[in-house]
């Protein structure tokens, strides 16, 4: 935190300087190279009660990417952000998103206890917040 005395005084001196009542921009930028992309995955399974967990997601994604791109695919780092029932939010490096999505889509899935499991890519974006904000819009129309 920037609570120490020198930084705090610098902070106020900047914000106090030209400001009166009017609003104004102090600094702007455009995010050109987002570091990560995010994807919402859904488990599609013949077993209706099947749910996802952290390890399963990693092993499914790993299998899918290995099948698609071999060792290169298996090396794509995937971070599991949240798992809830059949849904899962993951993070991948932005340049790898194309490969990740293609791998997941092309994956034939696994068979566990006679039930076929595949992953469906529901949505992806460079900005997690807008995905979170848009999540659940379907329920609006179905209600």
């Amino acid at each position: 935190m920037t609570q120490s005395t020198p930084s705090h005084s610098a902070d106020t001196s900047i914000s106090k300087k030209p400001r009166l009542e009017k609003s104004h921009d102090l600094l702007t930028c455009t995010v050109k190279n987002p570091q990560f992309s995010y994807a919402l995955l859904e488990l599609v399974s013949e077993n209706e009660d099947a749910e996802l967990d952290n390890l399963q997601i990693q092993s499914y994604c790993n299998a899918a990417l290995r099948q698609f791109l071999g060792i290169t695919g298996a090396a794509i780092p995937i971070d599991v952000l949240k798992v809830q029932g059949k849904e899962c939010w993951v993070r991948v490096p932005q340049p790898e998103l194309g490969a990740f999505a293609a791998g997941i889509t092309a994956w034939r899935g696994t068979t566990e206890d006679g039930a076929q499991n595949v992953l469906r890519l529901r949505q992806c974006s460079d900005y997690l917040g807008s995905m979170v904000g848009g999540h659940g819009q379907d329920t609006l129309w179905d209600s």
């Binding site: 702007t28 995010v31 932005q94 974006s125």
Partner: peptide, 23 residues
């Protein structure tokens, strides 16, 4: 494959502003 630009979604841009909103 890995370096291909993402074609699976419509890209968005993020504009960041730090400012003062006044009273």
């Amino acid at each position: 494959f890995a370096r291909a630009p993402p074609s699976i979604y419509q890209p968005s841009k993020c504009f960041v502003t730090y400012g003062s909103m006044g009273h």
